[in-house]
């Protein structure tokens, strides 16, 4: 299955992926309306310091701990994609406590959200990848177990 990977040596730390993610999931058509002057809640996060930076998003794990641990049964994996049913989530943060990759964070409403690969929003393919100016983020198949 294709996943989002970040080539750390190419990441500029520009945070554009965070903005593209927030916009892609805003459901709005105008980027200015969606983002201007607002605190954003993206599903990809740039971490690091002034020496190294890299973006992190959900790994869509083969054996996802978040799915097994959600106290509301709100997280499931189908066709390789790990998704959250936000109507069921109660914001307990148990998934944050178990995800080894730091890939989950609550949205503006306190309900959990994570990368779902833009498959169901209007982008259809990961917006962070498309918008990365240095092509540091890729969406591709890499070897290993599924």
């Amino acid at each position: 299955m294709k996943r989002v990977y970040v080539n750390e040596e190419w990441c500029l730390g520009c945070h554009l992926c965070e903005y593209n993610c927030a916009f892609a999931n805003s459901g709005l058509e105008d980027m200015v309306l969606a983002l201007k002057g607002r605190k954003i809640f993206p599903r990809i996060h740039v971490e690091g310091d002034d020496r190294i930076t890299f973006a992190v998003s959900c790994r869509h794990c083969t054996d996802p701990l978040c799915v097994k641990s959600c106290i509301a049964g709100a997280i499931s994996k189908r066709d390789g994609v790990v998704k959250i049913d936000r109507t069921k989530c109660v914001g307990c943060l148990t998934c944050v406590l178990v995800c080894p990759y730091g890939a989950l964070a609550p949205g503006e409403d306190g309900i959990m959200q994570k990368c779902e690969l833009c498959l169901e929003n209007s982008c259809g393919a990961p917006a962070c990848v498309t918008g990365c100016p240095n092509k540091a983020i890729v969406y591709e198949e890499r070897g290993g177990a599924e």
Binding site: R3, E8, F54, R59, R142, G144, E146
Partner: peptide, 13 residues
Amino acid sequence: TRETRRKKYGGVV
């Protein structure tokens, strides 16, 4: 370390 991160985040886990 960068090497660990490459392993953890760079493949299928």
